[in-house]
């Protein structure tokens, strides 16, 4: 199953205007009537919770209505349809995409990916001992920087039965577990990407079932912190970060959002292949991050001019 990763997250929200403004300020670009997209065309769809075009909501009321995966080709879409039709309904749409549900009732879609191949540099650094990534007289930053999200990265779900969820994504969709928090759940990547994870499942009581957060990859840690600072300056409130995770090594900064879940900026995630052996760790603050920073308003060690000598 050559699934690449999430192409689109479809939301049925309480406050469409607030969500559209939030998505725009986050750095996504409006596309058509309902979508906001990253630089590679992946993104989110924002509709009113009462919109008839949406799949039904989970019984918990989570605003995430559908996760639409991008896959390599139509043959992969058809193979997924054939696999899922063994034990559940699969809807086929005129555009070639399909829709079904996982074992917890989350609506899943699969389509030939819309993800465009990006050709742009990563954030660059200069370090002693290594070739300079930025040449002479090339500056790294300015106060006006407004970095854009590059691609839809991953989604984290609260699920009442994480082992069951892991088995479905592994056995039916070909996902691989890259790491795991004991008694919590697995980080998983589909076969078509080397990213450490495109999903993470968190074991919770059934009334919590839904989306925990979603995030887009940025161009590097400076982009994460700059984009987050721009959000703070627009009045949005941080939930967690900035910091750097251990599993996946990705930089993070989470913000509360009107989508009923947190929305994260992330960057610089580890890549893995079939040679990787999944690690396991106890959950908790110490194993969740190598460091955690906290925003404060700009400040500098400067007081008024010193008094003149003898004054």
């Amino acid at each position: 199953m050559n699934i690449i990763g999430p192409d689109l997250l479809v939301f049925g929200v309480d406050d469409v205007d607030a969500c559209r403004q939030f998505a725009s300020d986050y750095g996504l670009t409006a596309s058509g009537d309902h979508r906001f997209v990253a630089l590679d065309g992946t993104g989110i769809e924002i509709r009113s919770k009462d919109d008839d075009a949406l799949p039904a909501a989970l019984e918990t009321g989570s605003m995430l209505r559908k996760t639409l995966y991008g896959v390599a080709d139509q043959a992969t879409v058809d193979a997924i349809a054939a696999e899922l039709e063994k034990d559940r309904d699969v809807t086929r749409f005129d555009d070639g995409s399909i829709e079904s549900k996982d074992d917890h009732g989350f609506v899943l879609g699969f389509q030939v990916t819309v993800r465009q191949v990006l050709d742009m540099p990563a954030e660059t650094i200069n370090a002693p001992g290594a070739p300079a990534q930025r040449g002479v007289n090339q500056i790294a930053v300015s106060k006006e920087d407004s970095p854009k999200p590059r691609t839809l990265s991953h989604v984290v779900y609260f699920v009442p039965d994480a082992p069951k969820q892991e088995a479905f994504y592994r056995d039916r969709l070909g996902f691989v577990t890259t790491d795991r928090f004991t008694h919590v759940g697995p980080f998983m990547r589909p076969a078509g990407t080397q990213d450490h994870h495109t999903v993470f499942f968190i074991q919770t009581p059934p009334h919590m079932k839904g989306i925990e957060h979603f995030t887009f990859h940025m161009g590097g840690p400076t982009d994460v912190v700059t984009a987050g600072t721009n959000m703070v300056n627009k009045g949005y409130q941080s939930f967690w970060g900035p910091g750097r995770h251990i599993f996946g090594s990705n930089w993070f900064w989470y913000f509360k959002s009107p989508f009923g879940c947190n929305m994260e900026f992330d960057a610089d995630m580890d890549l893995h292949d079939e040679q990787w052996a999944a690690r396991e760790a106890m959950p908790g603050a110490d194993n969740s991050q190598v460091f955690l920073l906290q925003y404060r308003e700009k400040w500098a060690p400067m007081g008024p001019p010193p008094p003149k000598a003898g004054a």
């Binding site: 309480d14 839904g210 409130q237």
Partner: peptide, 20 residues
């Protein structure tokens, strides 16, 4: 999620924006 944004759109409920 933003200063003073404690209620849902209809003003019927207090909302925590982290997880709804």
């Amino acid at each position: 999620w933003k200063k003073d944004e404690y209620l849902d759109a209809a003003g019927d409920n207090i909302v925590c924006a982290a997880h709804g």
